[in-house]
Design a protein around this nucleic acid. Sequence first.
DNA 1: ACCCGGATGTAATAAAGTAACGCCTTGGCG
DNA 2: CGCCAAGGCGTTACTTTATTACATCCGGGT
Lengths: 170, 170
Amino acid sequence: MPQTDDQIAATFAPHDHRECAHRVLDEAAERLADQGARLTPVRRRTLEILLESHRALGAYEVLDRLAAEGFGRQPPVAYRALEFLVQHGLAHRLQRLNAFAACLHPGHDHHPAFLICRSCHKVAEAAAAPVREALTHVAGQGGFRVERVTIEALGLCATCAAEDAPDSTA
Amino acid sequence: MPQTDDQIAATFAPHDHRECAHRVLDEAAERLADQGARLTPVRRRTLEILLESHRALGAYEVLDRLAAEGFGRQPPVAYRALEFLVQHGLAHRLQRLNAFAACLHPGHDHHPAFLICRSCHKVAEAAAAPVREALTHVAGQGGFRVERVTIEALGLCATCAAEDAPDSTA
DNA sequence: ACCCGGATGTAATAAAGTAACGCCTTGGCG
DNA sequence: CGCCAAGGCGTTACTTTATTACATCCGGGT
Ligand SMILES: [Zn+2]
Ligand SMILES: [Zn+2]
Ligand SMILES: [Zn+2]
Ligand SMILES: [Zn+2]
């Protein structure tokens, strides 16, 4: 399974995020090497940018960052890098947000459910298997064969709920 | 519950669609009257347009239709009518498609799961309760309180699967 | 050196969505 | 009736998101 309950809480709770980023980046490099895919500078930098926080970034936010660092400043630069990362399971696209987030569990279940906190805007990945199973069952009864699912939840994370404040971007 | 398994199959199978549309339109008018909301000409026509098929339409497709019939030809015309319908539970927005579909079960569960056939492009509404429950449970273990969910499945409907052809727009 | 495919970069354009404003109708009220 | 407030409709203008098309560059194989 992609992540335990602790990992959901860990995403939202304050933590040493450097460690998150390093771990994922290392795993990413390794996975790509296996697949014979190249982690070029733009791609690597794009992943690093996504990894800077647990928030999802729009393609144009990423593009601005890349452009500021000397990479191309046209939309395809960002879209291509992001698409590459998504295809190789290193990032996810959030439909509700038109945004992208680094995958924190590369190599595991690549179609997780997303939990989006409406207060801190962080995004956590949750195990989608049970959810997908329920959906596949319901659909199957109607003769529909599910191939891909999008599961995104909007809500309030434990950390924000504890603060009880209406907003916090910590 | 919003719909039975039969209703999923019914959506995808050939059927007298006039009947679908009439039934929903009547229910819609009734519901709006209860709520004191007005089903104005643009709004009514927008709903009728969505009801013409079980496919989801983009805002601009709807707009083109409205414009051709003498309504305004600027985006807000379509977006306002669509938003009104969504807010009153008469239509749904599909995140994956950036598109809208008439709700075929107004008055019931207003946050269904959507089953989108990749071949005929029809959209069916499935009972989301069990799915949402599974998600709420998983999220809850991580301390996340789910408030709204988006559940959309891409796949193949029974009718298209039976035809076994890779594509059919019937 | 030559060629090739993949990766970058660009310009240009499409598609989706929103803000802001004015006019007109509806419906309540003196 | 005349008046006003609210809501609905239409328009202009604009923002945000995403794609198409094409030139260039780089690395590896021959
Ligand atoms: Zn982290
Ligand atoms: Zn939060
Ligand atoms: Zn029908
Ligand atoms: Zn189908």
